[in-house]
Structure formats: C-alpha cells, structure tokens
C-alpha cells in the first residue's frame, strides 16, 4: 500500500466519522425534548464531527501533497475554544429568560438560587 492510497484511506475514514457525528447531532436536535438536552447533542457531537472532518482534510493534504496546513490546525483549536462557551451562553440566556425545562426533569438546584437573588434585589 503506497502513501497516496494510505492518505486517502485515513482521510476518508476520518471524514466519514465526522459526517456521521454531524448527522447524529442533527438527529439529536430533532428527537430530544427541550432546549437544554438539545444543546447537549449540539455541543458535543457537532464539535467532534467538525474536528474529524478538519483532521481528515489536514491528513489528506499532508500525506498526499506534502502540504502542512497550519490553518486547519488553528481552525480545530478555535472550534474547541468557542463551542463550549457558545453552548454555555445559550443555555444560561435561555434559563434566565425562563425557557421551560422538560417534564422529565427531576432536579433543579438553580431555581431557588435565582429566585432568592431576585428577591434580594427587589
């Protein structure tokens, strides 16, 4: 097996895994009951999906054409830096504008804390 075949195999496996994970996170957005559980699917699977696609592209250009793209690595780094913060902020904003939790919710430690804070301010 020569280098170009190997690079194609590695790249295609990584890109296929990445697209499968992105599809999975789209399924998660449809199936899960409320905003908070949906953002579980959106932050985790989409992040790893993008990582796999970018990594596959990186390996393909590196092994097949000998071109080391630092931009792709930086892209991976920035996605990892920003995706969890975006998920966190969307959830926080949703909770503070009183978006309902799903019926199955068993525990809510944040509710009393926020109510106490509002009483203290008023």
């Amino acid at each position: 097996m020569n280098a170009s075949v190997m690079s194609e195999v590695i790249a295609s496996i990584l890109i296929l895994i990445g697209t499968a994970l992105s599809l999975l996170s789209a399924f998660g957005l449809i199936r899960l009951p409320d905003l908070y559980t949906r953002s579980h699917a959106a932050t985790k699977s989409a992040t790893l999906g993008v990582l796999c696609v970018l990594l596959g592209t990186f390996f393909y250009f590196w092994l097949a054409e000998g071109f080391l793209s630092i931009r792709l690595l930086l892209g991976i780094f920035f996605v990892f830096l920003t995706a969890p913060v975006a998920g966190h902020l969307i959830c926080r904003a949703a909770y503070r504008s009183k978006v309902e939790l799903t019926k199955e919710t068993v525990q809510d430690d944040l509710k009393e804390v926020l109510e106490k804070g509002e009483k203290g301010r008023a």
Partner: peptide, 10 residues
C-alpha cells in the same frame, strides 16, 4: 425510547 431524566445539579 427516550428514557432520560435531566436535571440541574450544583
């Protein structure tokens, strides 16, 4: 079947 029980924990 979705049998999840979400919640907020401190």
């Amino acid at each position: 079947k979705l049998d999840i029980e979400p919640g907020i924990v401190a």
